[in-house]
Every structure is written in C-alpha cells, then in structure tokens.
C-alpha cells in the first residue's frame, strides 16, 4: 500500500512566501512553514533553505521505493502518513521483512529536533538520511547505487540539475529530504485549543489527567514545551538489551548507558507500541510502568519513582494523553 508522491497530498502544512532573499544559489523564493499556534518558528538551516520545488522533490523521494535495495521500501513504509508518520509496529521492518531493533518514531515536528535517532547518533536532519538508506535492516542500499538510480531517471536528473545545479548528489538528496521533513508539523490537538484558552476543549476526565500530568504523575519533568519533550536523553527504567546501549553507543560514556531520547507525546495515543524497542503495547501499560517507578536497572533516572496513582487517576491520565491527538494532521491526506 505504497503511497506515491503524486497522489499523496499533504496539505496540512501551509507554506508561505517569505520576503527574505534566498541565501542559496537557486532563483526560487524562500518559503517558511506556517507553524501551529504556540510553536516556535521552524528552524531552517542557512545551508538548506526551504523552497517549494525542493520540498516537492523531497516529498517525491520520501515516497519512492527505488531508494531501497529491492525497490520495495521507501521512507514512507516506516513513516506512514496515515499512521502519524510512524508505522504501528514494535520495530521497523526493512527490505525482505528484516526486523530492525528499534521502534519507528513519528516524524511529525522533527524539524525542531537537535539530534536524531533514539540515541541521538545523527547530527542533522540531512545527515540522518544515510542511516536508514544504508541500514541492512531498513533500505539496505549502498550510496553509489542510490546515485546511479537517481541518475537513471530523467525527472530526478532534471530536478537535481535545476535545484542544485549538479547531477544527483548526496548533498542534494539529503537537502531535499530534509526540506520535506521540515514541513511535517502537527499542533492542532484539543490540548492546544485548551492551552489557547478554550476551557471546553478538554473533558472533565482529560482536565483531571492534565493536572496529574503536570503534578502528581511528574510527566512534565521530561515532557514539556510545545513539543511535549525535553529532547534530552534519559534512562526511564526499561530493561536494556546488551545489543542496544542507547546514548552510550554514541558518547561512549558509562553514564549514558540505557538512555534514549525522550519522545514527544504529541499524537501519542496514535503511535503505539511504545518505548525505543516497542516493548509496551498500550498507553495503560506505559502508565503502569511509570506508576511502578520503572524497573530497577543500572543508570535509571532519579526522576523515575513510584507514583502511587489510583486506578481512576491512571484512567484520567490516559484520557488526557488521547487529547494530544491532532486529528487535523490526517485531514489533508488522500489515500492511494
């Protein structure tokens, strides 16, 4: 059920023409995404300004399975628009159905992240493209083949020439994919209406859940700001496999063992299963994990302590998490 770039219309992002002169060499006018209320402006790197045609090229590449070894897997295979740019599986599945080791994170609002992947092992949105492209358990295609395939398709060849003034290149590929992903924004949940002053946006149970979220449950320590994440790396008391040491794999620091990036809670009710390994199937399981104070594992954050939540409080908290769903994200998507 692959969506093609041509019949997938993502209209939830409005791109506005900026008055600023574009810093790149293209003659296209620079665009800036119109962000949801309460959000910061989207950080757009100087070296990769957003232009309409670059975003469209990135969108086409995002949905194109030719970027995988057997031409069956695209970025959108694991980052499905109809699944809030996640995939609903415990761990991702790549070419030949090969299982990955981690849960696919949603790409919504990815533009605001500073480091990428669960362990922060990639430093820019452009740079992270190399990970899934080459990973044997994802798209499994070597970079030389990627360029050869793009070169062999006239529309891509022409688009790269027009946009980057060169034949298909890794720089152009990563810039286009980065530009497209910076337009994937989500901030239209009932929670946002409530924050904007609409007291009727949340039900009584959700309102109680929000109070718990900020108070007794302590969620706000790690899930704050308009993204509902600190974007920091924390050990939240999950049993860690020997094969995946988390942030420590990047830093080499013992104190980073078992730490993973705190995910955004936006649309969390729609992006099960949970945790870096997809090991928890439901929100109630997640809430129960934190209520118990996590497992006693090495390096667990001191923030993870038993909460003593009553059954009805757990229900209220879960109700609030459902209020973080942005149903408007789906409004503009047409299926294949």
């Amino acid at each position: 059920m692959e969506m093609s770039a041509h019949n997938c219309r993502l209209v939830f992002v409005v791109l506005a023409v900026s008055g600023c002169a574009p810093p790149d060499s293209t003659s296209e006018e620079q665009l800036r995404p119109v962000v949801p209320g309460g959000f910061d402006s989207v950080p757009v790197p100087v070296h990769n300004p957003l232009t309409r045609n670059k975003v469209l090229l990135g969108q086409q590449l995002f949905f194109d399975p030719i970027l995988s070894l057997d031409s069956t897997v695209s970025c959108a295979t694991c980052h499905r628009p109809d699944a809030f740019f996640a995939d609903g599986k415990a761990v991702s599945r790549g070419v030949g159905g090969r299982p990955g080791t981690r849960n696919t994170p949603s790409l919504l609002n990815i533009a605001y992240h500073q480091l990428f992947f669960w362990d922060g092992g990639s430093i820019t949105l452009e740079h992270q493209v190399f990970g899934p492209l080459q990973n044997p358990a994802e798209m499994a295609l070597d970079l030389a083949s990627v360029l050869q395939r793009l070169e062999s398709i006239p529309t891509y060849r022409e688009a790269f020439e027009e946009l980057f003034d060169e034949a298909p290149s890794l720089r152009g590929l990563t810039q286009a994919l980065g530009a497209y992903q910076r337009t994937l924004l989500s901030g239209g949940a009932r929670y946002d209406r409530y924050k904007a002053g609409d007291q009727t946006a949340l039900s009584p149970a959700e309102t109680r859940g929000y109070k718990l979220f900020k108070g007794k449950a302590g969620c706000l320590h790690c899930h704050h700001g308009f993204l509902l994440t600190s974007l920091r790396f924390e050990n939240n008391g999950i049993a860690i496999s020997k094969e995946d040491s988390g942030r420590a794999r990047v830093t080499g620091l013992k104190e980073d063992y078992g730490k993973f990036k705190v995910p955004s809670l936006r649309n969390v009710a729609q992006t099960a299963p949970y945790m870096h390994n997809g090991g928890m199937a439901t929100l109630s399981e997640v809430i129960d994990h934190y209520d118990q104070g996590g497992r006693e594992v090495r390096g667990k954050s001191p923030l993870i302590q038993p909460l003593g939540l009553k059954e009805e409080e757990q229900a209220d908290l879960e109700a609030f998490l459902h209020a973080l769903t942005d149903t408007t994200v789906l409004a503009g998507i047409e299926g294949p």
Binding site: H127, F130, N135, L170, R249
Partner: peptide, 28 residues
C-alpha cells in the same frame, strides 16, 4: 570531526564516500 558530511561537496576528502563508509551514520 563534528561537521555534517552530507553537506560537503562530492570530491572533498570529508564528503561522504559512496564506496567505503568514511563516517559513522550512527555515531557522529
């Protein structure tokens, strides 16, 4: 050693190589 190799023009020694990997994708 902390630059983004994806944005280095092809042909430069620090550009991402297309044959043998010269930069850790998962480990800057």
């Amino acid at each position: 050693n902390r630059i983004d190799p994806s944005q280095v023009p092809a042909g430069h020694p620090l550009a991402k190589q297309t044959d043998y990997n010269n930069h850790w994708n998962w480990n800057a």
